[in-house]
Design a protein around this nucleic acid. Structure first.
Lengths: 356, 356
DNA sequence: ACACAAGATGTAATCGATTACAAAAATCGA
DNA sequence: TCGATTTTTGTAATCGATTACATCTTGTGT
């Protein structure tokens, strides 16, 4: 009994308001959703009853009847990575404006958690899905698409009919990263990967390889360190780097966090950045402004990406477009800062361990 | 017509499955929610129909009937701050296990956005609310509590009947921070605030003042720089700091991001940390491991905080406790790292501008 | 003042599940 | 085999709104 005390609050239903105002439930509903449909006098009458009773419509009942949940599911690989937090801000800005809510699906870098959110989507708890993740093959995306649910891919492009892509030109950017390093005189490269199996990593690595080829290098001219999009991947890469005889001098990291982890770790071992090794990141997160030295990186238009993605999803939900009409690729911009520079040891093909 | 193509997927209802299996909807429902209540044979029959039709229950209808939404609202001040992302991870881990979903309410540091989420909660879109924010006075929290909605405060403690607090001992920690700096020989202090008007900032500043008093100093022995919990607050503080004649040597920042912003900016002006100025942060975010020098800070048990808060909320939702039974205060631990050290200029009460 | 159109309101069906209660079927003991 | 008991299944009410359609009011033009 006493444990019920805090929950014992009477729920006011639309029928209560109707009775209080002496009208039908239909009229109350109309006052609340389409005031022009009722006479001013009735409107005031009803509104007073609403005020007096403190009525707030039960949104679940509304959802059932109108068949719109006014919620969108956002599936993200990891929330602690500011990249996704920032995209989410953009999404939020756009959706909030239209009265939509956000249900968050956080994979925490564990792919198997995806299934749960696919189920959630398929049980019609949401009107649409924004996919900030993507794995190869993309079964989750397909099954949601097949169920008729509007869905937008905002990781790297998912090449499936009925799934518009709102992505950045990461492939092109990564290619440019290699060219940029090559132009600075680098001849031996390092690639710090992102989450294996993710489409986004595949895209970036493909771009990297294109860059290697375009600059006239071969597969033997780079090493690849693997790991998810986190700080520690960069640290692990740094450890491997420090063990090498012929160390690369031009490093590209598929995300800023890895780049930061790498730099922190090699500097602790008295490797100078950029004099001994140049590092280029990807993302343009705010942290990268506060590292020492400040990180050269590609800035993704994260907030805009979020807004545009949400906007496309809303258009899809409102049937204002066909999915195939939309595939947007936003540009990324290179921020040349302090972690990249020309190769100093011109005679060496690479920075040898003994020179440190 | 063609624009409808992607949405033209027949929805399968429980009645369809019932017809397919030759039973009533009640039986289908029972098979799905309480299989022991039906005969094995019927069970198999129904399950086959479910499989064949690809039936997934409409969760909105379930919610309406059962009066449980299986969703929880989490109101957070800002998602790009990893503190909240990390707490959210803990919350997510706990809630996902119990089948609950998370609706995110991101204030983006703008207090006026709170109203929207209070409405969302009051319209019964969620079964409970986790409040990672809190302002003075706490009207939002009160009105949700009054409506009978389970709610847990996870910012600093909200002192209201019916609202359990799951918080960290930030007041005590902040007091210790001052004592720690005093023990290192610092005599003049700086306090970089968090978001003004937030309960959490009030708590930390109160702790700071307690520390000042406890260590035998007066109001004249510290300066306070104000701003929200972001990097740029630290930068602004650094700018003010650089303009001062009698600079403090012991700085406490109410969050790690501000501390990092401060350090970055003063180091760019050739102030050495910790030789010229000691800085102590609060939060223990991952990025604080990667700054140079590494940040001395208080580590909040963020993930645990999230788990415990979610756990308390679930107990509340399931009526397994009364709110007043629970107020939990988790300890924070001081991580002594590289941004704090003894005062070098013993003769000076503070670091004068000319000595730089 | 009357006929008719336009506007306001009410009645009742509907969204898609769960579940109390009733009815039917299966099980059991004598 | 029969009646009593237990188990399984079905019928229909219910959750709380929206909205198509019917009905009743009001307003307009003649």
């Amino acid at each position: 009994m006493s444990r019920k005390r805090w929950r014992a609050v009477k729920e006011i239903r639309i029928a209560d308001v109707a009775r209080l105002a002496g009208v039908s439930t239909a009229t109350v509903s109309r006052v609340l959703s389409d005031p022009d449909k009722v006479r001013q006098k009735t409107h005031d009458l009803v509104m007073e009853a609403v005020q007096r009773s403190g009525y707030i419509p039960n949104s679940t009942a509304q959802k059932l009847r109108t068949r719109r949940t006014m919620n969108v599911l956002v599936i993200a690989p990891r929330l602690t990575n500011p990249v996704f937090a920032e995209i989410l801000r953009g999404v939020d800005d756009e959706l909030t404006q239209s009265g939509y809510g956000i249900i968050i699906g956080n994979l925490d870098n564990r792919r198997e958690r995806e299934a749960r959110y696919v189920d959630l989507a398929l049980s019609r708890q949401v009107d649409g899905v924004l996919l900030l993740t993507g794995y190869i093959p993309e079964n989750g995306a397909r099954s949601m698409r097949d169920s008729g649910l509007p869905i937008v891919a905002m990781c790297a492009a998912i090449h499936e009919d009925g799934i518009p892509n709102v992505v950045v030109q990461d492939r092109e950017a990564t290619r440019k990263a290699v060219e940029y390093l090559a132009r600075l005189g680098h001849r031996r490269f390092g690639y710090i990967s992102g989450t294996l199996g993710s489409i986004i990593e595949a895209e970036r690595f493909a771009g990297f390889c294109e860059g290697i080829a375009a600059a006239g290098f071969s597969w033997d001219d780079f090493v690849r360190w693997e790991g998810p999009f986190v700080f520690s991947t960069g640290v692990a890469a740094a450890e491997a780097f420090l063990q090498m005889r012929d160390r690369p001098t031009g490093i590209f990291a598929a995300c800023d966090e890895s780049a930061i982890g790498f730099i922190k770790h090699v500097r602790a071992e008295r490797i100078r950045v950029p004099q001994d090794v140049s590092v280029i990141g990807f993302d343009g997160i705010e942290y990268a402004d506060y590292t020492e030295p400040t990180l050269t990186t590609f800035r993704q238009p994260l907030h805009e990406l979020g807004r545009v993605g949400a906007d496309v999803l809303l258009k899809l939900i409102h049937n204002q477009m066909k999915p195939e009409d939309w595939s947007i690729r936003l540009p990324v911009t290179l921020l040349e800062r302090e972690t990249t520079g020309p190769v100093l040891h011109k005679d060496y093909k690479s920075l040898r361990r003994s020179t440190v």
